[in-house]
């Protein structure tokens, strides 16, 4: 999957509230692309060591940098600014509400490098900014299917239209479970090991029911009927009875489907009139939960059976 281009502007609009960012200057540079999803403290570069300078990263100025710069005579300071702003830095952030001096702002403006200020203490800012960048850089995509949180098990429900997805989701919501996304689930790879599903901001809380139209689930069933994001633990595919050629009667082996390169347990539930789909999906979720904790009922039963058959005299 191609890595998305993350601009400084995107970082700023998505995370300015959480990181308490204020733009002080260099707005033209907001279109700069952040090439590495992490931060750098430019202390060594300001001191003159630019042989190795992580210039593609967001640059964070803390007490150390600002105190060092303050101790320099004005013309020396200007030289240092010229030196590091000469690189196409994505942007600079002054933490602890430290104010950049006039020379800094002037040169940054000229070189089109955005300068921000944050009230957070430097370490706190670095932690939060790293997480924010990781989130922005995470591989993402969209998956066909609705998503529901059942007792802490995130279930992505797939199936051709008209198979009864919406009805079963409504029934699950009525049982007290929460809707994460209807029909289309946005997926993000988190920490490279789990896939988190969410809905698009626009359609959150809403779902479409044929014959009725678009309903607001949160307004109808209350706040608990909605969950904004959840890790996907199980994929359930609803399939017409005749189309399922090989129904798994044992469930001894775990089947998987891949999303963003992560293997996620998958079950196919054959659908025919009269089957309570919501109930089946609920049991599938609980089953997946138990299996995740290491319990495999089919295998256990089989082991007991084999032991019994081995103990019995031959031919009995």
């Amino acid at each position: 999957m191609p890595r998305p281009n993350i601009t400084v502007e995107q970082f700023y609009t998505d995370h300015s509230a959480k990181l308490d960012l204020k733009l002080l200057g260099g707005a033209i540079g907001l279109k700069h692309i952040i090439r590495e999803p992490t931060v750098n403290r430019p202390g060594l570069a300001l001191a003159g060591h630019t042989k190795y300078f992580a210039r593609h990263r967001l640059q964070v100025m803390g007490h150390a940098e600002v105190t060092f710069l303050k101790a320099l005579p004005r013309e020396e300071r200007v030289k240092r600014y010229e030196l590091i702003f000469g690189y196409r830095l994505p942007c600079i952030v002054f933490c602890r509400d430290l104010a950049p001096d006039r020379e800094c702002l002037r040169i940054a403006e000229r070189k089109n490098i955005p300068v921000f200020q944050s009230s957070l203490i430097t370490m706190k800012f670095i932690n939060l900014a790293t997480l924010a960048l990781e989130q922005l850089f995470a591989p993402r995509g969209s998956e066909m299917g609705s998503m529901v949180d059942i007792h802490g098990v995130g279930v992505l429900i797939r199936g051709d239209s008209g198979i009864g997805k919406s009805e079963s989701i409504l029934a699950l919501i009525e049982r007290g479970y929460s809707l994460v996304a209807d029909d289309m689930t946005r997926v993000t790879l988190v920490d490279g090991r789990e896939v988190v599903g969410t809905s698009s901001d626009l359609t959150r809380n809403h779902m479409e029911i044929r014959g009725i139209g678009i309903v607001n689930v949160a307004a109808m069933f209350g706040a608990k009927s909605i969950r904004s994001e959840k890790r996907i633990d199980l994929i359930v595919t609803l399939k017409a009875w005749d189309e399922v050629k090989d129904v798994d009667r044992l469930g001894m082996e775990e089947e998987h489907q891949e999303i963003l390169g992560i293997r996620i347990p998958h079950m196919t539930i054959p659908v025919r009139p009269g089957r309570d789909l919501a109930r089946l999906i609920e049991v599938a979720a609980l089953h997946a939960k138990l299996r995740r904790s290491g319990l495999n009922p089919a295998r256990e039963l089989n082991e007991r059976l084999m032991a019994q058959m081995a103990a019995a005299p031959r031919g009995l």
Partner: peptide, 9 residues
């Protein structure tokens, strides 16, 4: 499974 039909049964 309940039958527990071992070999030779």
């Amino acid at each position: 499974l309940m039958l527990a039909a071992g070999p030779g049964s």
